[in-house]
């Protein structure tokens, strides 16, 4: 199952957050972005339970202000 997670982060921490996110196993692609969000993440997960686990982990990263998750439907 694919998912896209969009992050708003503290600007000074964007690079370190990106590195942390990239290290997560199910992350297929992550990059800093211009526009309404600061980081875009593409994930491949087994199910909603794994997606939930990962969105929690991402939200716990220091400097992450908010996330918007778009699960495949």
């Amino acid at each position: 199952m694919n998912a896209c997670v969009l992050l708003k982060v503290v600007p000074t921490k964007a690079d370190s957050i990106l590195e942390t996110v990239k290290a997560i196993r199910s992350v297929r692609k992550a990059f800093l972005t211009y526009g309404r969000f600061d980081i875009a993440v593409f994930l491949e997960v087994e199910d909603y339970r794994e997606l939930r686990e990962i969105t929690i982990r991402i939200n716990e990263i220091d400097g992450v202000r908010s996330t918007e998750t778009l699960p495949e439907g």
Binding site: N2, A3, C4, R28, K29, F42, E68, T69, L70, P71, E72, G73
Partner: peptide, 15 residues
């Protein structure tokens, strides 16, 4: 490279 329908504030997301 990647496109899928989504639930939430959008209908489709493309990489």
């Amino acid at each position: 490279k990647r496109v899928f329908p989504v639930l939430g504030r959008y209908d489709v997301v493309a990489d």
